[in-house]
Design a protein around this nucleic acid. Structure first.
Lengths: 118, 118
DNA sequence: ACAATACTTAAGTACATGCTTAAGTTTTCG
DNA sequence: CGAAAACTTAAGCATGTACTTAAGTATTGT
């Protein structure tokens, strides 16, 4: 049913798909400033609320945002390390000539998230 | 007709859409090792040639690869800086707490791109 | 209680995507 | 020339996407 259900793959399909829509990127950009409710997120987008709710579902299914409902308000938050996997994939696929910095970044990143076994 | 025609936006739609398919990512991964023909790219994918040609069109429309036909062989190549825009967008959308390394990376990158080491 | 608020669900539409098979089109080789 | 190789185009199909309007469900303020 769900095409990007995290089941078989590594979630990259879902993350990149989530990022491929300008409204969803706008939502993420807004969430960088801090958590926000559904209607606050919807306001600048110029589409109906249900459309926004669908976009949020795509983002949440991809693990890029989280949300909780308190009372009648659902508050959405950018997931920590949400885009890390996508960024890592991109870094690894630079041309050799562009790749010099990646080792440094990888080394530094090791300190901040769960240590990758080498 | 074309949804991602580079016309109105900045191309991020097209790039992220291109990356959202595992076969297209496999193609890019293969192209990191060097240019390849359509049938070489098709071989490990387990789908028909026309399907692969369509994937290549998506990648080329997104500006991620280039291709030229010589004789009856089309050779595809990873576009230089192809994924830079996507990576930049991602870096800019990290949480503040994760953003410490970005300044360093940005600084170092300034010295290295647009400058081929000879 | 009543109504406004803030979603949420449902149904439906138009178009895009990813795939297939079948039938071209060029080249290139014997 | 004639056939094989390497695409290329065309047509069609099943599913997915993004949106809409309309109706429903909780919560909250008066």
């Amino acid at each position: 049913m769900l095409k990007f259900s995290e089941g078989g793959g590594d979630g990259l399909d879902a993350v990149f798909h989530a990022l491929s829509d300008p409204r969803r990127r706008a939502i993420l950009t807004r969430l960088c400033e801090g958590p926000a409710s559904v209607s606050v997120l919807a306001a600048p987008l110029g589409v109906s609320l249900p459309a926004v709710v669908q976009h949020l579902a795509v983002l949440e299914d991809a693990g890029v945002i989280t949300s909780i409902k308190v009372g009648r308000v659902r508050t959405c938050t950018l997931a920590p390390n949400a885009l890390r996997a996508a960024e890592a994939w991109l870094s690894a696929r630079r041309l050799p000539q562009e790749r010099r910095l990646d080792r440094l970044e990888a080394l530094l990143s090791t300190e901040s998230h769960e240590r990758e076994p080498s």
